[in-house]
């Protein structure tokens, strides 16, 4: 659709015959101007989906679109719209930060070198330093500056915070959100730790075992879910989603009707609890074993 920056239609990906699919038929649409958190455990298919949008991993079935463009038939047109930061920051160890700006500038006529320099200057990042001399956080900031100055409207960031300390994460997210909102761009961030991205995202997509288990606006998702310890209460308008292991106790996630007021014993679920609950749904094994007392034997 015209309002969608990124689309996935029935996308499946199998890397090796006989192996479990990395993606098992994903249908997804990312609205233009949104910041989406694409979360899930390791192996859920988040990176595979990102790489499909960038044209690196061709789906076994289905198709992906970038602003309506197929990245496998019109790669150049699709890549012109996208700025991508991979899981491992792809900087050249022997090149300085300034060299990286020169490199991207030589490959991309639309590259705004002055903007990239301003962003790096705001962070007091010296441009004469080699990438190998930068910390993980600084390398991520350089990658972000390159991407924000690339003229792209769609940013795909694969686990951008994984190697960053808490302060560096805050700085990164702040600059990312500011950069994205400034121009009404679209961003998708993946993480296996949802607390990293919850404050930046306005949409949450949870992938589990190659499938989409949740796709909802953050505000409405938080409003529509409650959490409790023990079993779900038997109340009209409260629907059981899943039970999962909390810290020393079993947590139960429920979905409530939109107009339901506060319920005793239930509190608002955090995004992490939302993710855990939807991932646990359909995988009750560990919880059942804890309940029956057979876990760990």
């Amino acid at each position: 659709m015209a309002d969608d920056a990124l689309e996935a239609h029935g996308v499946a990906k199998v890397y090796r015959r006989g192996a479990a699919p990395a993606l098992a038929g994903i249908d997804l649409a990312i609205r233009k101007g949104s910041i989406t958190a694409l979360v899930g455990p390791n192996g859920a298919g988040k990176s595979t989906l990102m790489k499909a949008w960038v044209g690196f991993e061709r789906p076994t079935k289905g198709r992906v679109l970038v602003d309506g463009i197929d990245p496998f038939t019109k790669r150049g047109d699709a890549l012109a719209k996208v700025g991508y930061i991979p899981q491992q920051t792809a900087l050249y160890r022997e090149l300085t930060v300034a060299d990286h700006l020169d490199l991207v500038g030589s490959l991309l006529p639309a590259f705004d070198r002055a903007l990239a320099l301003r962003r790096l200057d705001d962070l007091n990042l010296p441009t004469d330093r080699q990438a190998s001399q930068l910390s993980g956080g600084q390398q991520a900031q350089v990658a972000l500056a390159l991407v924000l100055a690339s003229g792209a409207d769609i940013f795909l960031l694969d686990e951008p915070l994984a190697a960053l300390d808490p302060l560096a994460r805050r700085e990164f997210l702040y600059l990312l959100v500011a950069g994205v909102r400034e121009r009404g761009a679209t961003a998708v961030l993946t993480s296996h730790v949802v607390t990293d991205v919850e404050q930046a995202a306005d949409r949450l997509v949870v992938l589990g075992q190659g499938q989409k288990v949740l796709d909802e606006d953050v505000a409405s998702a938080v409003a529509a879910h409650r959490i409790t310890t023990g079993d779900a209460p038997d109340i009209h308008g409260v629907e059981f989603v899943a039970s999962f292991l909390g810290l020393g106790e079993i947590m139960t996630l429920v979905r409530v009707a939109p107009d339901h007021g506060p319920i005793d014993g239930l509190r608002s679920a955090t995004l992490e609890e939302l993710m855990l609950g939807y991932l646990a749904a359909g995988r009750p094994g560990m919880v059942e074993r804890v309940r029956s007392g057979t876990a760990g034997r």
Binding site: G76, D77, Y84, L91, Y92, H100, V104, L107, L108
Partner: peptide, 18 residues
């Protein structure tokens, strides 16, 4: 090998141009 191809190959419209 070093993973650095991702940077130019996501920026340039034609890899042959790189």
């Amino acid at each position: 090998e070093r993973g650095t191809a991702i940077l130019p190959w996501t920026v340039v419209r034609s890899r042959v141009r790189w």
